[in-house]
Design a protein around this nucleic acid. Structure first.
Length: 887
RNA sequence: GCCCGGAUGGUGGAAUGGUAGACACGCAGGACUUAAAAUCCUGUGACCAUAACGGUUGUGCGGGUUCAAGUCCCGCUCCGGGUACCA
């Protein structure tokens, strides 16, 4: 039978759709459940990219396999469809973003369906659908009404928050202020990055290192705006601990840990000459207090005004102004050159009562720790650079653990910085009574913290890099906040019954002039009046794109529920997600934000698991070949001519180098999945994406490679689709062995997401079957089953040709029989001194002694021994023989 | 700078410490064909050698552990990703 993939694929896609083959039954009685999730895409106007099907095919193979293993499988797909491109298109053309979004979703859906992916389309969700974002708003209300109880490390309803009496006495305004200060969501002024080009606020994460906006490349500025923020750092410890409980790649776990950035140390209070107020610093090295020769506070520190003495005020103000104008670019570029200014004032070092100068410098950040540091130039490289530049004293207080005596001398003299361990010197003071001389780092830190705490000078402290999450955007195309700002200053949230709060239709989508979102133009929508006639204005910010993707996996469980966010019995059954596959670019933000929301929902009893995603896997990026000249100039792929395996810039042009690069329009090396499916079919595309290499590595796309799997499918079709190759009766032992070997291999490989080697095993079996010329009907059916998760269209077709009536999507996965895999003989490689010289076929049952005897009796062994006696013989049964000869 | 990966034929890649290069592409030769495409068969790391056998060498570089190292340990080089003065 010819391999007519077009007919076969259309036929089976229609069959699956008509029969709702992959509709997940709402059967909560099957104890074997498996929730297999893809990171749902943002449906861009460009359509599907070959990177998308990589992860989708992997989860599809896994899903189909699990169904055949008798699992109840939840495998849904949806759209993360809020986002800027549709809004910018609306600004340009006046087309409502919902129309653009719908069109893009339709394209994506069509393309995905053409790949034969076994999604339950009845569960399709769309973050822009009011029936969906109603619940996103609902979760926001929960966040607003939750506080974090540090003592039990748990989020609790705000109604359970005890307001201290001294605050209650100050009146209702102070009480509200106190309560607001504990909510997980709060509204406050925040200095944010502002992109003048897009006229939107950008999250820190969206600003690139060079100070440009990730989306448009324009330089961003700082701007003060009222913003919604989420107190994610309160969950830092929980987020950190949870990482240890999930089956994720270690690299991703590390990235999350680093992002949370826990560091232990101490807060130390320094008294300031002439001021009542103390200056508090955070340090991870309180043990180096004796080496603190100056202090630095951030330019944005609230005490800069008080600390700066008159004579230095001008210089300080100039410096603060200058640094406030700096973008990240400047701060990074100037990282090599430290800047700073002296305030004229001195602090007192608590360990020895010495006066040390207070400086202002922008290498100290306002958002981390207390925004102030004690500088220990002898043992911190940044402080060292600064001290050298401004001629501040460097006092070495640790005898370094180094051999090099010259280096040791330089360190002791304060001419080189030492950040490793060593025994303390110069670290005692009679007047204060502290002495850590002779101790090493760990003991020194313990002793100093104890001392500080006993004197109320400081306290042990844990700090996190993780910052509050800026949770609002000045955009139209996002979830509206269910929030009203009343004229008397009160903020109130909508009642659950009033959800969803819809987006108003607009004439124009341009942002408001002051940086407000386009919603500020929607007068009718904007103003509200309560029963008492009080006027209010709706929140004009909308939520960031993260909001919808933070919890979508939960809605898939019960996507059409109008009464509840989801049915709780269903949630208990399906959660957690068993396998989650997506790109590593979401390793930190999406996964961290999503885990945070999930933990809040868990604390409130809305979900039943502490972590949402049990096993995570990141597919590698798919790159493409690109071409460059000797000098490294990139040449678009359409100008390249291939001749005898070499590449030239045009006919007769200069020789080019083939390199591997990201697919890009400028390099003209973008591969469109539609082109691949029209030429080779969806099964070939699927198979090639999996055959290219391990799922998690980045790998280049090679059109020639598709041919390999296409050939395999063609040969499969011609062999198993031709009934003259199939007979009724017992199977040949060699074929039987090959088949069961394949079943075992494919099963293990699918479980471990090693699809490339599973496909190779199928090719090996096909080669064997072709060589034999005929296989039994049973063998053919088993093979179709193994093929089914990978190339489902062709597998269904073969299954039908072989006389079966139903879809094989739910046929039981074949069981391999170890009996068939048993070998009578093993071909022993015989090495001499580790070098393989010849092999010898021996029965597997042979004892070590017999093997030794048989090998030594062989003429070839005699040749390699050359008359001398072996000094050692290592026999590993069914593996190897190694003979050691001394010469 | 720091953190995390990676380096194996012409190419993508395979290999529980135990026969390096499975499988596939490409290439070469052959069959079929008037011819081409498609398909099928054979060969294919490099080097030396041969009528045939065979041998040497080989997993980025330098050391080490081991009977045995692509795999484990130490020290580098290069490439990719993440991150940016986090006290």
């Amino acid at each position: 039978m010819d391999y007519n993939f077009n007919n076969i694929e259309k036929k089976w896609q229609k069959y699956w759709e008509d029969n709702k083959t992959f509709k997940t039954p709402d059967d909560l009685t099957n104890p074997k459940k498996c929730y297999i999730l893809d990171m749902f895409p943002y449906p861009s106007g460009a359509g599907l990219h070959v990177g998308h099907p990589e992860g989708y095919t992997a989860t599809d193979i896994y899903s189909r396999y699990k169904r055949m293993k008798g699992f109840n499988v939840l495998h849904p797909m949806g759209w993360d469809a809020f986002g800027l491109p549709a809004e910018q298109y609306a600004i340009q053309t006046g087309t409502h973003p919902s129309i653009t979004t719908k069109n893009n979703c339709d394209t994506f859906r069509r393309q995905i369906k053409e790949l034969g992916l076994s999604y339950d389309w009845d569960r399709e969700i769309n973050t822009t659908d009011p029936k969906y974002f109603r619940w996103t708003q609902w979760i926001f209300i929960r966040l607003y009404n939750t506080w974090f109880d540090d003592t039990i490390q748990k989020g609790r309803p705000i109604s359970e928050l005890q307001v201290p009496d001294d605050i209650r006495k100050k009146g209702p305004a102070e009480t509200v202020k106190y309560i607001d200060s504990r909510r997980l969501a709060y509204y406050d002024n925040a200095q944010v990055w502002w992109c003048p080009n897009c006229r939107i606020v950008c999250a820190n994460e969206e600003v690139l290192n060079d100070g440009s906006h990730e989306k448009c490349g324009h330089r961003v500025e700082k701007k003060n705006l009222k913003q919604w923020m989420l107190r994610i750092p309160l969950y830092a410890e929980r987020l950190l601990k949870g990482i240890d409980t999930v089956d994720w790649p270690e690299g991703i776990k590390d990235m999350q840990r680093n992002w949370i950035g826990r560091s232990t140390g101490a807060e130390v209070d320094f008294s300031v000459e002439g001021l009542a107020e103390k200056l508090t610093v955070f340090t991870t090295r309180p043990d180096t207090l004796f080496g603190a020769t100056y202090m630095v506070i951030a330019p944005e520190h609230p005490m800069t005004g008080q600390i700066t003495v008159k004579e230095h005020a001008d210089a300080v103000n100039d410096y603060i102004k200058a640094s406030s104008l700096k973008s990240d670019l400047d701060r990074t570029d100037l990282a090599k050159e430290k800047t700073g200014v002296f305030t004229g004032r001195y602090a007192i070092n608590p360990v020895n009562n010495k006066r040390i100068p207070i400086w202002i410098a922008d290498y100290v950040l306002t958002g981390y720790g207390t925004g102030a540091i004690m500088a220990v130039p002898a043992h911190d490289t940044r402080d060292f650079e600064f001290a050298k530049k401004f001629n501040l004293p460097v006092i070495c207080i640790q005898d370094p653990d180094v051999q090099d005596s010259e280096q040791k001398a330089r360190i002791l003299e304060g001419n080189e910085c030492w950040t490793e361990d060593g025994k303390y010197i110069n670290s005692s003071d009679k007047s204060t009574g502290i002495d850590i001389n002779g101790l090493n780092k760990e003991a020194g830190i313990q002793k100093i913290i104890k001392w500080l705490e006993s004197r109320n000078l400081g306290t042990a402290r844990i700090n996190y890099k993780l910052r509050d999450w800026l949770f609002s955007r000045q955009r139209y195309w996002g979830e509206p906040f269910p929030v009203i700002h009343w004229e008397d200053g009160e903020i109130s949230l909508l009642d659950d019954k009033e959800l969803p709060l819809m987006l108003p239709d607009l004439e124009k989508y341009l942002p408001g002039d002051s940086g407000e979102s386009p919603l500020s133009n929607a007068d009718m929508w904007l103003t509200v009046t309560d029963a008492k006639g009080r006027k209010g204005r709706r929140e004009t910010n909308t939520m960031p794109q993260w909001a919808g993707s933070c919890w979508y996996y939960l809605r898939f469980i019960d996507p059409k529920n109008d009464q509840l966010i989801f049915d709780h019995e269903k949630e208990k059954y399906w959660m957690p997600v068993d396998l989650y596959i997506g790109g590593a670019e979401h390793a930190v933000l999406h996964l961290l934000y999503s885990r945070f929301w999930h933990k809040v929902l868990f604390d409130l009893g809305i979900v039943s698991t502490d972590e949402p995603y049990m096993k995570l896997f990141n597919q590698g990026m798919i790159l493409a070949f690109a071409y460059e000249t000797e000098t490294g100039m990139k040449i678009p792929a359409d100008q390249v001519v291939e001749k005898e395996g070499k590449f030239y810039h045009g006919e007769g042009g200069p020789l080019l180098r083939q390199i591997v690069a990201k697919m890009s329009k400028s390099l003209k090396n973008v591969v469109n999945p539609d082109d691949v499916t029209s030429k080779y079919g969806a099964d070939s595309l699927r198979l090639y994406e999996m055959f290219m290499g391990p799922l998690d590595v980045t790998k280049p796309w090679d059109d020639k490679g598709v041919k390999g799997v296409f050939n395999f499918l063609g040969r499969t079709c011609r062999f198993f689709g031709s009934l003259e190759n199939i007979y009724e009766g017992p199977e040949d032992p060699e074929v039987l062995k090959g088949l069961h070997h394949l079943i075992k291999k494919a099963e293990g490989d699918i479980e471990n997401l090693r699809f490339n080697t599973a496909i190779s095993a199928m090719m090996i079996f096909l080669n064997l079957a072709t060589k034999k010329g005929k296989v039994s009907h049973d063998t053919a059916c088993q093979f179709a089953k193994v093929l089914a998760p990978f190339a489902p269209h062709l597998a269904e077709e073969l299954w039908q040709i072989l006389g079966n009536k139903n879809t094989l999507a739910y046929e039981p996965w074949p069981v391999y029989n170890e009996e068939y895999l048993k070998e009578d003989n093993f071909e022993y490689p015989v090495s001499f001194n580790g070098k393989m010289r010849f092999s010898i076929l021996l029965p597997v049952s042979m004892s070590k002694e017999e093997i030794t005897k048989a090998v030594l009796a062989d003429d070839r062994a005699k040749k390699w021994l050359g008359g001398s006696a072996p000094s050692n013989i290592i026999v590993v049964p069914n593996r190897i023989v190694n003979i050691v000869v001394k010469n």
